[in-house]
Design a protein around this nucleic acid. Structure first.
Lengths: 149, 149
DNA sequence: AACGTTTTATAGTCTAGGCTAAGTTTTATC
DNA sequence: GATAAAACTTAGCCTAGACTATAAAACGTT
């Protein structure tokens, strides 16, 4: 299917094409989200217990171990992790950068929600879902408000 | 090697089981999100032009018409829409209720982002992704800040 | 009333991300 | 050092949500 390129400067809320872009973006984001969840979790597990094994990841994500195995293969292909069987999964430098960026964004979103009066528990839960959809510009806006306080 | 913005840290995100629940919830939410997008759009189209045909929906969502047809079948099974071929798709009462709630949440999120200084285009795009992950409590916090202004 | 256009329906394919089941390799224990 | 347990691999299947290609039905215009 052809996707006409809409000039960025033309922004009309009612324009179907521009709306379609937003939906496309939202749909395509799903792959990235999963990757981000994985690298963030791997960073956490490694930090906490020195290693991140497939079974640990599976338990934390609520999926089965073969599912994790398949996803790790993909992450390895994308140069985000390296695997040493029976010794755990490790982030590449690129993976660590992604993990840190994701983590940082997560923290800002969560802190921001708390800051505007959301109770900590809800903030934590909502941040988990929201974080992947926050653009740099929105993140900056969050930071600005946090700084002012 | 690029240095990360923030050093790695240990984050307490709860025990593995509760984390797994959060991820499961997030995964299952996908279906709901799509349904919400559809009913919201159908409500919009109906209001603006008096009818919502498959081709209109397809163009607005950036997908093909057969994709829409398949999804409408599902929405009909869930009692959210009724179809009158060549006259458009119509929301059931249940569908209208869902559309209204979704639309309201969407508007608040988008208005809130603009209010804290995000440019309208980014706000619109981010809202599309964020809206589905905003709990009632967070929504209320957004509203409160909007009212103050 | 017939014809071309638009809209809708259907069939078949693809990919991502789940799952189970079963086999293999490594680690740990006795 | 044998053997059980744990971790990993692999194969095959399923579903959702996308796509293309094509057929059928209704609409509008003349």
């Amino acid at each position: 299917m052809k996707q006409p390129v809409t000039p960025p400067e033309v922004v009309d809320r009612g324009d179907p094409e521009s709306q379609a872009d937003a939906f496309r973006k939202s749909r395509n984001a799903r792959r990235t989200e999963l990757m981000e969840d994985y690298v963030e979790l791997i960073a956490n597990l490694t930090e906490r217990s020195g290693e991140a094994r497939q079974t640990d990841i599976a338990r934390c994500l609520g999926v089965t171990q073969p599912t994790v195995a398949k996803m790790l293969k993909r992450l390895a292909e994308e140069n985000l992790v390296t695997q040493r069987p029976y010794r755990g999964v490790f982030l590449t430098e690129e993976g660590q950068r992604l993990a840190w960026a994701t983590h940082r964004r997560h923290e800002i979103v969560e802190a921001f929600l708390v800051h505007i009066g959301v109770d900590p528990d809800s903030a934590r839960k909502d941040a988990e879902g929201i974080e992947h959809h926050v653009s740099d510009k929105t993140l900056k806006a969050f930071e600005n408000l946090l700084k002012k306080a």
